[in-house]
Amino acid sequence: MVNAFTQSLFVFHAACSPCNNCDIEILDMLAPRHDVERFGIQLVGSPRHADVLLVSGAVNKKVVHRIKRLYEQTAKPCFVIAVGGCACSEILFRDSYNTCGPLDTILPVDMYIPGCPPKPEAMIAGIVKLMEKLKGKKK
């Protein structure tokens, strides 16, 4: 079971009111320079296929129900990674009237990748660490 997570991860990218910077960097991971498909990491179009949810942005009140529903739709076990400062801690948006708290108050977060925005290298390092940890769990 866990073995499936150590080879090729299917990643679903869910953006919750981001500034799009993390999202561009996530797409940048797919572009030729970083090309994460080498490691078998692939973005998928439906949460039902996803092993990992990459969530970016400060969750606002219009999105919060949708992100919860999205998580419900994923096949479990599914790992949630909070990408960027907004998802990890909301940075300056914590005082806003329209945000609902950092991501870990809404979904069970397995991993945090901080940065504004984190570089693609940091994201790859994060995902690889997740894979290694899962391998360790198997032993």
């Binding site: 009140k61 219009k62 005082d95 806003s96 009237y97 329209n98």
Partner: peptide, 21 residues
């Protein structure tokens, strides 16, 4: 704002309860 935003709470008014939380 979302459809269920409380009526009468206007974020940019100076005296309103601005954070809505």
């Amino acid at each position: 704002l979302s459809e269920d935003w409380p009526a009468g709470n206007f974020p940019l008014r100076q005296n309103g309860q601005s954070d809505g939380k």
